[in-house]
Amino acid sequence: MSTPDLTTPLPVTDLGNRAAPRKGRRLRAFARNPTFVAGVAILGIVVLLALFAGWLFPTDPQDMVGPPLLWPGDDAEFPLGTDSLGRNVLALLVHGARASLLVGISAAAIGLAIGMVVGSVAGFFGGWVDILLTRLIELFQTTPTFLLVVVIVAIREPSLQTIALAIGLASWPTVARLVRAQFRSLRESDFVVAARSLGYSRTRIIVQEILPNALPPVIVAASVMIANAILTEAGLSFLNMRDPNVVSWGGMIGDSRDQLRNAWFLTALPGAAIAATVLSLNLVGDGLNEILNPRSDP
């Protein structure tokens, strides 16, 4: 029996030798992933609006600029209408993006910083250090997050800084657990053993060998943390625990409680903004999870 030749050259299973720059290829492949692209697009718009809020709506958004309770489309000057105090809803939304993103990002940054330090120390050193820090993590985790934030904000006056700090303080245990687990497994990996056998210092091993490999899941977690912080901030504002001088989406919802029946758009619009931002952050997180995993092939 003879085999007819397959004239088309087909690539065989290539187990290595991929000289092509994989990172570039991966990015291009993910640029075609529609949900990731949608996430980046929505988030991009929100970020741009927040950045250029002062340029788009240079006057104080809290100023009364028109008749109260104009519906969207009623007046071309206020495309999204006005609220019960005659404030421009579009201006409020755009300025609110600022507060929401600011609280989200700074809370996540605080949570990440504490969580990464605690998690890496616990995971790398192990032993009694680990036992002690793990107990601390558990202590914070068993406290209801929202309650903790409410208590902290109640103690101090509710400024944006206090809110961001409170949310950050409540959210670090998740990061700490994640980083600790990463460090524990990476600490035993052969390349870390190799680094030790080469006589590298502990700091070098943590910073240069372990941390870059522990980061990807943390970055993914960070996007979800920002989303959670935005939600928590909205919840606090709704409970009137907010900076009265700053516009935020949650505050807009809180202010419009009473108009829920006759002007539902006043709650629906900031609600939609929150939902879209949180969704986009989750989509970006999922996408990053795929991109940053060196073993996943697009």
């Binding site: 990996s189 390349f191 190799a194 056998s197 060196p294």
Partner: peptide, 23 residues
């Protein structure tokens, strides 16, 4: 121990796990 580390080294079994994928 550091100066003595130079004098003895190790080769590992797993050619995948023994190299830092990000270096």
């Amino acid at each position: 121990m550091a100066p003595h580390r130079r004098r003895m080294q190790m080769i590992f079994q797993d050619p995948f796990g023994s190299l830092n994928p990000r270096q």
